[in-house]
Simulated scan of single mutants.
Amino acid sequence: MTDQSWAMKGELVLSCNCTVFCPCVLSLGSHPPTEGYCQTWAGFRIDAGHFGETDLSGLNLGLIMEIPGYMSRGNWTAGLFIDKRASVYAVKALTKIFTGKAGGTTSLLSILVGKFLGVEQVPITYETRDRTRVFQIPKIIDGAVTPIPGKDREKDTVITNSEYWIAPEIIVAKSDKSKMRAFGRNWNFAGRSAEICKLDWRGP
């Protein structure tokens, strides 16, 4: 049987339409987004990863999602952007992971996502400039997210020991700029909620 095990380590940056820090993180989906619905994009940087024997290291991804109300109630809409540098095998593997079909950390996506808009393979950059994460997909996403400093101005504000499915530690952040135009959507979330998390996902 072909090896279906997978893992990835790296970082994720997420920008959404919530006016204050996303209540879905703290409530684990039992509280609605501040606007009553969620529109969000996320950028992924895979520092090290594999699906079976397929290497995923060094690739970037983008994901957009719309959630009509409580996160835990499902009926999400999602669309995926995969690094232009990815091989045919990597595209198939990442599509399987990010639709939840590969099991493991992302398995809940197979339950919560009711409509999948498809996959586009495009150039993607994910950079760290000082503390700011800059995520760009030409003509699609133009984002810059900066952590919110704590009482010690040299340190980020961090939520720790969380049961949040993405990661147990979440850096509280804000979008300096956040534009997304794709799949018939046109969003601008500048000044709104954002988060940064370490990726340490695996399956099945």
Score class of each variant (00 low, 15 high):
48 A>V: 08
183 F>M: 11
143 G>D: 13
109 L>I: 01
37 Y>C: 02
201 W>C: 03
108 L>I: 10
136 Q>T: 15
70 Y>S: 05
78 A>D: 13
151 K>D: 15
129 R>C: 04
11 E>H: 06
95 T>L: 12
22 C>G: 12
188 N>D: 15
183 F>G: 08
143 G>W: 01
3 D>K: 00
119 V>Q: 10
21 F>T: 08
195 E>K: 04
132 T>M: 01
114 G>A: 09
19 T>C: 11
40 T>M: 15
154 E>C: 08
4 Q>G: 05
179 K>W: 01
170 I>D: 10
12 L>G: 02
21 F>A: 04
101 K>F: 12
154 E>P: 05
149 P>G: 11
159 I>T: 03
200 D>H: 09
180 M>E: 14
128 T>Q: 12
173 A>S: 15
40 T>V: 15
114 G>C: 03
2 T>S: 08
201 W>E: 07
98 F>I: 01
187 W>E: 14
166 I>M: 11
171 I>P: 00
38 C>T: 08
130 D>E: 15
190 A>S: 14
75 N>F: 04
47 D>M: 05
75 N>E: 11
172 V>R: 06
177 K>T: 06
106 T>R: 00
51 F>N: 02
23 P>D: 12
112 L>S: 01
15 S>P: 04
60 N>M: 05
157 T>N: 03
100 G>K: 05
111 I>C: 12
9 K>C: 11
204 P>K: 08
198 K>F: 09
103 G>S: 08
83 D>S: 02
113 V>F: 03
19 T>I: 14
37 Y>N: 07
153 R>C: 10
10 G>F: 00
106 T>W: 00
134 V>W: 04
164 Y>S: 06
101 K>E: 15
121 Q>W: 02
154 E>A: 14
180 M>C: 13
148 I>M: 12
164 Y>Q: 07
44 F>M: 07
115 K>L: 09
118 G>I: 06
178 S>F: 04
51 F>K: 05
185 R>W: 13
200 D>F: 07
141 I>E: 02
46 I>M: 12
